[in-house]
């Protein structure tokens, strides 16, 4: 009896507020445009489902036919992949150095990596606007030391989006990398050097393969949220920065075409499902070891 209730309460909550809404999105993605009433419209009364009539794949064929959506998906994919690689390139040396730092200092360094994660995401993205804009601090600094004479326009470009994503998600990359590097047995490296490997060679042939689980986990943790990112492309990107999260937002709030927004959401999930499942598999394998 008690056990039943224990299972029932969280089960019911997640069914009602996660699974059912999610299935509704899928259903609406197959419905017609009539549904696209403003949420506050006085004409909009009663059940959404009543308006859902002929179910068809029209919205999906529309999305595939319109280059805006296709380009948003491709551009999100490119931005997410490049930012993941950049995050790895910046995060790896940091995680590596953290793992080699004196034992007593390591908890402090981990804490310093986690602290920005607790700070508001929006504020951390906002901080870059003041730095990157044309009369911003970076340009002022570069001009005062004479590196450039004309201000660089970085804000409202894809470069700013890369900076924003790398900055916001760097902790997600460093922590799993640090976790695997910290566990690594250094005697393996010494053995490799004794057997004639150069230090560089030992790094590529031992450290990198051993830290692969961390590299994979960190990359997924950056790639998955970056793919659906809305705030960063909206605040730092320009009008020609296409990302699917932003397209969905505009479709929903500005164009009020809910069926198309729902279809975009389903396609985004279809793209993410492979990395998400892979990530879960890697995590399970790690936990099982």
């Amino acid at each position: 009896m008690g056990r039943r209730l224990l299972i029932f309460v969280p089960y019911f909550w997640l069914l009602a507020l996660f699974l059912i809404p999610f299935l509704m999105v899928f259903r609406i993605s197959l419905s017609d445009y009539d549904l696209a009433q403003p949420p506050y419209s006085p004409h909009f009364t009663g059940n959404v489902m009543e308006v859902v009539r002929a179910l068809d794949w029209e919205n999906y064929t529309f999305i595939f036919g319109d280059s805006l959506y296709l380009n948003s998906f491709l551009s999100s994919l490119r931005i997410a992949i490049i930012s993941t690689l950049l995050t790895l390139a910046i995060g790896y040396p940091m995680a590596y150095a953290m793992a080699r730092a004196p034992r007593g200092v390591q908890p402090l360094l981990v804490m310093l990596v986690i602290l920005p994660f607790w700070t508001s995401f929006l504020i951390r993205v906002y901080a870059w606007i003041g730095i990157l804009k044309s009369e911003g601090l970076l340009n002022l600094f570069l001009m005062s030391i004479g590196v450039i004479s004309e201000p660089l326009s970085i804000l409202n470009t894809n470069t700013a989006v890369y900076i924003g994503i790398v900055y916001a998600y760097l902790p997600f990359m460093i922590l799993p990398l640090y976790a695997t590097l910290e566990k690594m047995d250094d005697s393996l490296l010494e053995a490799a050097e004794d057997l004639g490997c150069s230090r560089m060679e030992a790094f590529w042939r031992i450290t990198i393969p051993l830290s692969l689980p961390g590299i994979i986990a960190g990359s997924f943790l950056v790639f998955i949220p970056a793919m659906g990112e809305f705030v960063i492309p909206d605040l730092l990107g320009g009008s020609n920065t296409l990302m699917i999260g932003k397209t969905l937002w505009v479709e929903f709030f500005n164009n009020r075409d809910w069926p198309v927004a729902a279809s975009v959401a389903m396609l985004l999930l279809a793209i993410l499902i492979v990395p998400i499942v892979l990530f879960q598999k890697v995590q399970e394998k790690e936990a099982g070891l």
């Binding site: 507020l17 059912i20 489902m49 809305f230 729902a262 959401a265």
Partner: peptide, 24 residues
């Protein structure tokens, strides 16, 4: 699945689906 999925679900999708639930 329902416990782990929301952790990785893009926020725009979570938000959209809940809004549609509340309206319906």
């Amino acid at each position: 699945g329902m416990v782990y999925a929301p952790l990785v679900m893009p926020e725009v999708i979570t938000g959209l689906s809940l809004l549609l639930l509340f309206i319906s």
